[in-house]
Design a protein around this nucleic acid. Structure first.
Lengths: 239, 239
DNA sequence: AGAATAGTGTCTATAAGACAGTATGCC
DNA sequence: GGCATACTGTCTTATAGACACTATTCT
């Protein structure tokens, strides 16, 4: 039995101002490869799985190293393992996807963070990536878009409190289409996932909207018997 | 980098006569472990991934070795990789699930097939399994049941032609609840997944029902940018 | 004819979408 | 007061479910 390399990669999503329009746009951080193969090309953050480390914990490391924050949601996406997907030998990659809240990203300035080789890209304007990462990003986008329509994962991209208008804009940014404000409001309230805080957002240019928060007793997504992944398990137990 | 063992396991589903009632019941083949750890316990069929073999092809081997037939559907389920899931060392298992048509199973009698250590179990009456396989089976059942409600994967369990009554019984066996024949018929026809052959099933005790076949131009399930897995790829290309 | 399943019709409840209309705060 | 957004009301359409009813074949 020859050794097969086992790696983890993570597709990280956050909402960031679009470079052109400044409106919130679904974005993904990528790292530039500094060595062969594919030196100079952009790729998904990731690395080898440590022998004593769970898969989700390995994905958690990836997140910290690139965004510097704890993700609000983490889920296994798919495992890619075609024999020829890496020119240097057999590598099987367990890929995760994560949601990060924008206010937590901040600007990393410490020496450990190499901002030259880490850059955020708008999700629908990704360059041609190394390995089979184009396919992976495409699939992760499909999964996010499918899931945002029938779960409450959008909260993984938002802060503590928010207006329904902001929540709607998150859905619009993810789905890349406009939604009817009236109908969206009704569905959001009927779902029970959001709860009004009783406060209003002042300082806007118009009528102050109500602030909401997510019902913390409800899960972000129903993944069946498997719960959500915990990238930073307290001890060492995990699937 | 210490080596991490990479394995593949497969949850195989087929409809077989329930030992007690003789009615079609969702069933899973298991293999009895002949060595430690967990010697004597039932477990999912599987094995090590060959260095030159794709993950789906490895799952395909599993299928042939236990059921002896080509599966009608194969999909990656999840990758389990907790550091302590095997007492003998670190093993990461990429798990697949598959559907097999009952008429293809047949009874294997050749010497290569050890029927003593391979047995079919009714899905809702599975013994306590080796490793973390209890969880895996539970999750695969959830996935199958979720998917049968919004896709046409039930055809993976049926033969070439069938009556709508038979199709409904497949759904009922999977979901473990009765469905209204009238409403089921309407939905099946409206979905466009089934097409009447123009023939009828004679020889029954009552009014002969129409025979249908699946619309081969439609996919069994929408897995997004990733298509269905092919366990027996012609050359060597795959994800 | 009767039994049993095949197949159709129809009513109700629910939800999504379109869109008109009212409310309220800031300029 | 005007404007932009917040928020409500209501109509239409599609679909799921319940269930009554008709059709056809075999015994």
């Amino acid at each position: 039995m020859r050794a097969i390399g086992l790696a983890v990669s993570t597709v990280i999503f956050a909402l960031r101002p679009h470079p052109a329009t400044q409106r919130p746009a679904l974005s993904i951080p990528l790292v530039r490869r500094t060595r062969e193969p594919y030196a100079g090309r952009w790729a998904l953050p990731g690395g080898w799985v440590d022998p004593d480390e769970s898969l989700a914990a390995s994905a958690g490391r990836t997140l910290v190293e690139t965004t510097g924050v704890r993700p609000s949601y983490l889920e296994q996406l798919y495992t890619f393992g075609a024999p020829d997907r890496s020119p240097t030998g057999r590598v099987v990659s367990v890929v995760y996807w994560a949601l990060v809240r924008p206010e937590q990203i901040g600007e990393r300035t410490d020496a450990a963070f190499d901002s030259v080789n880490v850059r955020w890209f708008v999700a629908d304007d990704i360059p041609h990536l190394a390995f089979d990462h184009d396919r992976i990003v495409e699939y992760s986008l499909w999964r996010l878009r499918t899931k945002v329509e029938y779960t409450a994962i959008a909260q993984g991209l938002l802060g503590e409190t928010f207006t329904l208008s902001e929540l709607r804009q998150v859905h619009e940014a993810v789905l890349d289409r406009e939604l009817d404000p009236a109908n969206f409001r009704r569905q959001a309230e009927a779902s029970g996932a959001v709860v009004p805080t009783g406060e209003r957002l002042t300082g806007g240019r118009h009528r102050p909207p109500r602030l909401y928060r997510f019902d913390t007793s409800a899960a972000l997504a129903d993944n069946g018997p498997l719960g959500a992944d915990d990238p930073f398990p307290p001890s060492g137990e995990e699937q």
